[in-house]
Design a protein around this nucleic acid. Structure first.
Lengths: 222, 222
DNA sequence: CCCCATTTTTAGACATACCTAAAAATATTT
DNA sequence: AAATATTTTTAGGTATGTCTAAAAATGGGG
């Protein structure tokens, strides 16, 4: 059973997220941004990961994950998100408090632990931010979410995820009382600045900027 | 807030256990045995820990913990034992399966996490092996346990801990159906080999070797 | 009290994962 | 297409934590 360092796992996870988002080869600089290091350090690590056949890498041409690399990345993502569910649901953390702790917990090595935790939590499919949780085999439920900014006028949807995971943004949503599961209807888009007038749970009507609307992800309703 | 590496924490915990057990300065070799390295590596680490004022160390004279070092060691022990409770009580692991996982979890850094976990578990005072759990301030409940081998004949006590934490021994106890909380009465000691005849919960009577009796820790009753 | 076995420390290396500075490759502008 | 800007890689170095082999200190037995 091959084992990987925390650092390797962090790189694989970062690459996975970047590939997921862009669907193309990932640049050294982009990775450096994600894992908070310098490009030179990334190059070092890419060589090592390529050596281990976890990424396919050609100098100056960016990287993608191999099947093996993707499997590892998804295991880490699975653990991260399961622990987030635990921290919020069982321990009472708020959704903006759990990221850093889950960043540590995601590296705990024990398949038995991951699977028992999954069972204990009742096999959740999404984490506290609405992000889907890969199953044991690495399969991720497809969510079909669109940003609130793309919801047509007078259409309803369910608030189901966020595009920005920063505590700042999450705390902002708390303050506005916009929560996962809320029904949101887009009443109108202001032509001038693209800001949106929305109704939450058919009760409160508020105004959100386009920037905010882009980062609220919606599951469309019939 | 000073932060410490996993390795430093492991050394401090090992030193704490050795001091606890022997009540005297701890030798380089003893530490090497505990943390599974070579004496030379230990010497390197001792220099670093002394530098950081976590141990008091004089060449060739062994070490003890400073107050600061002890505080850190006890935090690690606290986390280790709380996580063991979680793994056994909430996730359904057996008491012989949790050590390696807890060795990893004990290094997760977040006071909020430790305290919320403690609360979630109902502020347990002992872990699944009967070892006492230090509180937030590092205070450890004194247990006053004696090995079964020292229990007087025809005296009763409650099985409350183990001297040997190896899975082998724990599994052996499972097979003999000797569990934490059981009432044990020492019926007689065989003169020939010091083996013991004991009654468990006033029901089953079995024979255990002296070696085993030494590693079963008892809380004396009246 | 001296010799010798044991323990501990030092010296010199190695792997991981970072860094800075400079060189090389690629991309963009004019 | 040449010049310039940006990105990426290489080269060389640092810190952590490990190792082996050799030197130094300790401590018991005769």
């Amino acid at each position: 059973m091959a084992t990987h360092t925390h650092s390797e796992e962090n790189y694989l996870k970062a690459i996975w997220k970047l590939v997921e988002f862009s669907n193309e080869n990932v640049s050294t600089n982009a990775i450096a941004g994600s894992v908070n290091t310098k490009a030179a350090s990334v190059t070092d690590m890419l060589k090592k990961l390529a050596e281990k056949k976890l990424i396919s890498y050609e100098k100056y041409k960016g990287v993608t994950l191999t099947a093996k690399g993707k499997r590892i990345a998804l295991e880490v993502v699975r653990k991260h998100r399961l622990w987030e569910v635990f921290l919020v649901r069982q321990l009472g953390f708020k959704w903006d408090e759990v990221h850093d702790i889950a960043e540590q917990l995601e590296h705990i090595k024990s398949n038995a632990l991951t699977d028992k935790l999954d069972k204990f939590l009742g096999f959740p499919t999404v984490d506290p931010h609405g992000d889907p949780i890969p199953d044991q085999t690495g399969k991720i439920p497809d969510q079909m979410l669109i940003p609130l900014s793309q919801l047509p006028e007078n259409k309803k949807g369910v608030m189901s995820g966020v595009g920005d995971h920063s505590s700042k943004f999450l705390q902002f949503l708390d303050k506005q009382e916009i929560h996962l599961g809320d029904t949101i209807e887009l009443k109108e888009t202001t032509v001038y600045d693209q800001s949106k007038l929305i109704t939450i749970n058919h009760k409160k009507t508020i105004h959100v900027s386009q920037e905010v609307a882009k980062n609220i992800l919606i599951k469309k309703l019939g």
